[in-house]
Nucleic acid binder design. Structure first.
Lengths: 205, 205
DNA sequence: GTGCAGATATGCAATGGATGCAAGTACGCG
DNA sequence: CGCGTACTTGCATCCATTGCATATCTGCAC
């Protein structure tokens, strides 16, 4: 990796850190892009060559997570059905984002309270959903047409999102509660599809 | 209804119409709030006493749709299970209101192509989802805990949304296409639940 | 009808995100 | 070392959005 690349990566990380720090201290709306740029010691204009918008700063790893999910689908076992694959994709891409880490908690708080951030988060989620649905359809060409794959993926993601929305409405809960809620959500979403997609669908975590 | 109210309603409608007209002719980003306000013959500042943002102009009846869904839940039959009720609520709020209007296709097109609009649409959807989940949990207090209700609702909405996303992937030109896509989406996305509940058993959690 | 209180409308100014442009600076490579 | 390309940056600009102060209107009571 060249010096230039390393430098750029370092600046990028500095921006992410500065953003987290400032959002924490002054709130999202109370922090201007100029503040963040100054804290990372770059010009305000330059900020936008690293992130397309202020919100992007909060989702720096969206691409990686999508790739991780694609990876998980690609590396499925021969006996896995669509439901199993979706479960694995979810675990893979959600792994590093342990919902209970302090950083994640702050991000969730921002998603919950700042409309612009929520809107962006939902868009990213929908984009990810589309990619996953495409891969899923490719993975099971004889069992899932594209529309059905999209519906299945949407049901899965929607259930998880809905459950988390309720669960995370209050203050941060314990890890076990999160696990239980996820289990509930995936069960609810996938159960009706079992006879559509095969029996191996139920999985436990 | 007082004169004041009528006047206000008329201005509001004028703004909606002017917006549709201008977005159509100049594109969303090519149309400024000042343009819209001028076309409706009010001051730019006044626009924001009618709509909180430029995007809101595209979702003037969000409240009514939520109310329609709540209505559908409230008026459930004695033998309906959660899935039946949800199904009816979705069909009602989707069918009832605006999707039949001639501007439906244009709105879909804007949702599809303008990030800000898509973000807002998703937020509105999520908010609606939360309300519906709450009502559903209230309607079946002994069968559904809040998290399960939210997961179930999210699964339904997510499934339909996911299917729609694929069905409306390309440019959308006429309202008829929207209607048939919606029909197909609900059929594909919700079929699994209909079989499921037809057996008499609700989601088994 | 008159006049008041509260709701509305509007103009003005300011903030802040975002973008285009042109000039400056640094890096990679021959 | 020297050049071409990529990265930075300041500047001007556009536009959405908001606060504030002021003017205007409507509903209502008298």
């Amino acid at each position: 990796m060249s010096l230039r690349d390393r430098k750029r990566a370092r600046t990028r990380q500095a921006l992410i850190d500065a953003g987290a720090e400032l959002f924490e201290r002054q709130g999202y709306d109370g922090t201007t892009v100029a503040d963040i740029a100054a804290a990372a010691e770059i010009g305000t204009r330059t900020f936008f060559s690293y992130f397309a918008s202020k919100e992007e700063l909060l989702f720096p790893d969206a691409d990686e997570r999508i790739r991780a999910a694609e990876e998980a689908i690609a590396s499925r076992g021969p006996d896995d059905g669509p439901a199993d694959v979706l479960l694995r994709a979810l675990r893979t891409s959600a792994r590093d984002t342990d919902l209970l880490s302090p950083i994640a908690a702050r991000r969730i708080e921002l998603i919950r309270t700042v409309p612009a951030v929520r809107g962006r988060a939902l868009q990213i989620q929908l984009d990810a959903q589309r990619v996953i649905a495409d891969r899923l359809a490719e993975a099971f060409p004889d069992r899932l047409d594209p529309v059905t794959a999209a519906a299945l993926t949407g049901a899965f993601v929607g259930a998880v999102t809905g459950a988390l929305q309720v669960l995370l409405a209050g203050p941060v809960t314990d890890a076990q509660a999160v696990r239980t809620a996820l289990q509930t959500a995936t069960d609810v979403a996938l159960a009706p599809w079992q006879h559509h997609t095969a029996r191996g669908a139920a999985a436990r975590t």
